[in-house]
């Protein structure tokens, strides 16, 4: 969920993560470094689009804005018979990658963001 001008909207995220290492601690498992890719898509179809809406002269007047992708890495701890996973992640989205390549002031705080997630693992 995110907000824009006080209204709340939903975004849907898909990701694939790879853990090279894991360490068992009692009935928990630590994955010290997960790496992956993700996509994020907003369900606000009014403000964001895949093709430029009809008021624009061409469908590619703007690049699509509804869907973004990026890279992420972080650490995760699975517990409760590995059903639940608590993770801390750092992400950089594709627009941020372009900025890193073009920008001489590489202030990382604008290009990457962090988050905490609680996941249920369907196995």
């Amino acid at each position: 969920m995110y907000s824009n001008e006080g209204r709340h909207y939903t975004q849907v995220n898909f990701g694939y993560r790879y853990s090279r290492w894991q360490y068992n601690i009692d009935d928990k498992t630590l994955h010290p470094l997960q790496m992956g890719i993700f996509t994020t898509r907003t369900l606000d179809y009014k403000a964001y689009f895949l093709e430029s809406p009809s008021q624009y002269p061409e469908k590619n007047y703007y690049d699509e804005t509804r869907l973004r992708w990026g890279f992420e890495f972080g650490s995760a701890l699975t517990f409760w018979s590995t059903r639940f996973e608590l993770a801390y992640l750092v992400r950089i989205i594709d627009s941020g990658l372009v900025a890193v390549l073009n920008n001489s002031n590489k202030d990382l705080q604008y290009y990457i963001s962090s988050g905490v997630s609680l996941r249920y693992r369907f196995e």
């Binding site: 969920m1 824009n4 975004q11 750092v90 962090s114």
Partner: peptide, 14 residues
């Protein structure tokens, strides 16, 4: 690197 990463809820938010 994670210490440089603030929390931002979404690229779509204000």
């Amino acid at each position: 690197t994670s210490s440089c990463a603030p929390f931002r809820d979404s690229p779509f938010s204000d």
